Each structure stands twice: as structure tokens, then as C-alpha cells.
Simulated scan of single mutants.
Amino acid sequence: MKIRKKLAVTFISVAVLPLLLCGLFLTGKLREIVIENAFVQVSTNVERVSEETK
């Protein structure tokens, strides 16, 4: 392999892959948090409306 290809492979394996994996992991966790908060808000709003309509 030429030195240019070796450098490209090294860069991808050292810099790009870890950033990609961290991004995917953090995006998944953020999505879970957002969905959980949305469910909490919905249930709070449903409780509030049912209390007001009694």
C-alpha cells in the first residue's frame, strides 16, 4: 500500500469511526430523553384537562 492509502485508512479508523459511533450513540440517547419528556408532558396535560372538566 502506498503511504497515502495507509494514512487515509489510519485517519478513518482513528478519527472518523469513533466520531460516527459517538454521534450515533448520543443521538439515540437524546431521542430517548425527548420521547420520555414528551410522554410526561402529554400525561400531565391529560390529567390537567380531566381535572378541569370534572
Rank of each mutant, 00 (worst) to 15 (best):
G28W: 02
L17P: 05
I3D: 14
V40M: 08
S13W: 01
S43F: 07
C22Y: 07
V40P: 04
E47A: 15
M1C: 13
T44A: 14
V40G: 06
K6S: 12
V9Q: 08
L24C: 02
V42D: 01
E51G: 06
K5F: 07
P18K: 11
V9D: 10
S50T: 08
T44P: 00
M1K: 13
L26D: 00
Q41N: 11
K29P: 02
V42E: 04
E51C: 01
L21V: 12
T10H: 11
V34N: 14
G28K: 10
L21A: 12
G28D: 04
S43V: 08
N45Y: 00
T44R: 12
Q41Y: 01
F39W: 07
F11R: 06
T53G: 09
G28S: 06
V14S: 07
V46Q: 01
L26Q: 03
L24G: 14
V34F: 06
T53Y: 10
L7I: 08
V40W: 00
V42K: 12
K29S: 02
G28M: 09
L19D: 02
V49I: 07
L20N: 01
E36Y: 08
V14R: 10
V9I: 07
E36L: 10
V42Q: 10
K5G: 14
R31D: 00
A8W: 00
T44D: 11
